[in-house]
Design a binder for these strands. Structure first.
Lengths: 192, 192
DNA sequence: GTCTATAGGACGATAGAC
DNA sequence: GTCTATCGTCCTATAGAC
């Protein structure tokens, strides 16, 4: 792998786990086994430019991954359960925030950098769109599909937070079991 | 107000908005108009001790507030809508993370400090317990109440995240409208 | 109980050799 | 394209006067 890709790969994981401010350039350099001069050659505008490159890379990875899972299952309910299953598996093997989550970056940077905030917004939007497409294929109206997709995104993101504090994957497991209740028999009762 | 309370009050808000690492002691001191010696007199173990004091204070504030709201409304649905309404109001007037959220602290510190992680876990638990009590009063079984309360906590926390990225309160508004669908006609279908 | 001054280290970023 | 050396700033924390 070329140096630039290596930096992005390693930095992405670190940023997901520890947030943007929580990861120093030195830590990234050490894990990559490169030096400061090399990093600034590939990212002349420094750390924030690197972060945005990581978010773009993350967008590719996440959407490819979720599209693949959602293509493999008949309906949104089964696909969602499979997806959360995968997140839980990651969480239990790595013991930390990875996969489809980047809440640490959002909560730190949303107020500090519009460029980063927009990149994160775009990433959430891409994920939600995949849900919306599957839900409309299931027969939901566009409006209801959007509401449900948003609730899915929010509860998975929040569920990761709860898993982190509890050091268990229980919260996501319960969410995986509870979320389908929004789908069932509620095709027409969204937006009361 | 005595100095110690002043420090806690101001630091709590700053930590909620910018996270733990994102706020320097100097910024806290400046807003309090006090000096470093004074802060270290009240919190001899430094910044992390202050953070934990802030989380304890936050627990008081949040639970008092939510208990009050949940006491004012007949059922969980109405109480939840009123609560989210209040969060949205805060969000729109302050334009930043405050109120019942502390996701920035969780995502930054959960892996770094067990003391902080436990304080956050306790805080989430307190909030969930209020929901659980109201839900069982509504007639839900203990187990279903727990599942729904967890989904509520997660989706509100995740919804704040989406509001931050989009600079709108739309996500929380939609969540407020969509969440009640989990309650309706689903008393017995949780945990499929 | 509050102040000033300062220690000692980590940070992001730059300069210039090779 | 990668390296080392270094700058200037910020950080948490401490020491000691009042």
């Amino acid at each position: 792998m070329d140096t630039k890709s290596l930096i992005i790969t390693i930095a992405t994981t670190l940023f997901q786990q520890k947030g943007y401010i929580g990861v120093g350039l030195n830590e990234i350099l050490k894990e990559c086994n490169i030096s400061k001069g090399s990093l600034y050659h590939h990212f002349p505008n420094g750390k924030e430019e690197l972060l945005i490159a990581c978010l773009q890379s993350l967008k590719e990875t996440i959407t490819t991954d979720i599209v693949e899972i959602f293509g493999r299952y008949q309906n949104t309910k089964k696909a969602t359960n499979a997806m959360i299953e995968k997140i839980i598996h990651n969480l239990e093997t790595e013991g930390t925030l990875t996969g489809y989550t980047f809440s640490s970056i959002v909560s730190e940077m949303a107020l500090l950098s519009d460029a980063v905030r927009n990149a994160c917004a775009e990433l959430y939007q891409e994920i939600e769109n995949i849900y919306v497409n599957k839900l409309t294929a299931d027969g939901y109206s566009k409006e209801n599909a959007r509401s449900i997709a948003l609730l899915m995104t929010a509860s998975i993101e929040g569920g990761m937070m709860l898993c982190l504090t509890q050091k268990t994957s229980e919260p996501l497991k319960i969410i995986s079991k509870t979320i389908p209740n929004i789908f069932d028999d509620n095709v027409n009762v969204v937006n009361l």
